[in-house]
Simulated assay, not measured.
Amino acid sequence: MEKFKFAIKRYKNDQLRVINDKADREEEFELAKIKNEANNKNEDVFKRMEDNIKVAEKIFKSRKTNECRMSEMKVRFDMVEKIEEDAKAKLKIQKADLPTYRALLKQLIKQGLIKLLEEDVEIRCLREDEALVREVMGGCEREFNEECEVKTKIVVSTQNYLVAADLGGVTLTSLKGRIVCDNTLRARLSYCLQLLLPEIRELLFHDSDLYLAQRKKEKKEADLQRRRAVAENQKH
């Protein structure tokens, strides 16, 4: 009987030890699992933080780059605008030279007549220039009629004068204002500036990063168009 009790007790103890060992292993496994998940979670958190920092750095760098470009573009715009204002001031001074301005008005009127090629033409000018315009328009009309098949008649508008911002020059209209040739000094100056803008930029901003990048882009586009044209010619 004692041996039987001892065997039962030992079996019981063995089972308890097995259960305890299994419980310890399961506990260690769960602890390791929890720790691993925590580590992975921390790694994910740190990875997201690192990615967010990189994105923020890129955004900051891009914003600063754009700010620099906008600042440089504003400087360029202001400098070109300053050139335009200086040119306007010089035009006002040159207008005071009446022989030179008279010859210029004659050229502007004749050019407008050639562009319009109409029989009835109305001229608008500054009120202060009306006498000078009347002085030269007769010769312009006569020379135009001698050189062209169209015979034109010029009148000066006394109801609708140019404004001071036009600087001077003339506007020629026909067909009750439906056809207009703007030969004011303001319009001619704007046209000249547009033609000379590439040279002005080259002169003022030839060492600018933004200008160099723009020139590189323009050259790349021109090369691409040239290659496309060559490819089209080869097809035909």
Rank of each mutant, 00 (worst) to 15 (best):
residue 1 M to I: 00
residue 2 E to K: 11
residue 4 F to A: 13
residue 7 A to M: 07
residue 7 A to D: 06
residue 8 I to M: 07
residue 11 Y to K: 04
residue 19 I to H: 08
residue 21 D to T: 05
residue 22 K to D: 14
residue 22 K to I: 04
residue 25 R to F: 08
residue 29 F to P: 00
residue 30 E to M: 09
residue 32 A to R: 07
residue 33 K to E: 05
residue 40 N to P: 00
residue 42 N to S: 12
residue 43 E to W: 05
residue 47 K to F: 11
residue 54 K to A: 14
residue 57 E to H: 11
residue 59 I to R: 10
residue 62 S to E: 12
residue 65 T to K: 11
residue 69 R to V: 12
residue 69 R to D: 13
residue 72 E to Y: 05
residue 73 M to E: 04
residue 73 M to Q: 03
residue 75 V to E: 14
residue 82 K to M: 11
residue 83 I to R: 01
residue 85 E to W: 00
residue 88 K to H: 02
residue 90 K to M: 14
residue 91 L to S: 04
residue 97 D to G: 07
residue 98 L to M: 13
residue 102 R to A: 09
residue 102 R to C: 08
residue 104 L to I: 02
residue 105 L to F: 08
residue 108 L to Y: 09
residue 110 K to A: 14
residue 112 G to A: 14
residue 113 L to K: 04
residue 115 K to P: 01
residue 115 K to A: 15
residue 116 L to G: 11
residue 116 L to C: 09
residue 118 E to D: 15
residue 120 D to A: 15
residue 121 V to G: 07
residue 122 E to Q: 11
residue 122 E to K: 06
residue 125 C to S: 15
residue 128 E to P: 01
residue 128 E to Q: 05
residue 134 R to Q: 11
residue 135 E to S: 12
residue 137 M to T: 10
residue 137 M to Y: 11
residue 140 C to P: 07
residue 143 E to Y: 01
residue 144 F to A: 07
residue 146 E to V: 01
residue 150 V to C: 06
residue 155 V to D: 06
residue 158 T to C: 08
residue 163 V to Y: 02
residue 163 V to F: 05
residue 164 A to R: 01
residue 164 A to H: 04
residue 165 A to G: 02
residue 166 D to Y: 02
residue 167 L to S: 05
residue 171 T to D: 04
residue 171 T to Y: 01
residue 179 I to L: 15
residue 184 T to S: 13
residue 186 R to Y: 14
residue 186 R to I: 07
residue 186 R to Q: 15
residue 186 R to P: 08
residue 187 A to W: 08
residue 187 A to Y: 14
residue 188 R to H: 02
residue 190 S to K: 04
residue 192 C to P: 00
residue 192 C to F: 06
residue 193 L to R: 10
residue 194 Q to Y: 03
residue 196 L to Q: 09
residue 197 L to K: 14
residue 198 P to G: 12
residue 198 P to S: 11
residue 199 E to M: 07
residue 201 R to Q: 13
residue 206 H to V: 11
residue 206 H to R: 07
residue 208 S to D: 10
residue 211 Y to P: 02
residue 214 Q to L: 05
residue 218 E to P: 02
residue 219 K to N: 15
residue 219 K to C: 12
residue 219 K to I: 11
residue 220 K to M: 12
residue 220 K to F: 11
residue 222 A to D: 09
residue 223 D to C: 00
residue 223 D to W: 00
residue 227 R to I: 10
residue 232 E to F: 05
residue 232 E to R: 04
residue 233 N to A: 13
residue 234 Q to K: 09
residue 236 H to A: 05
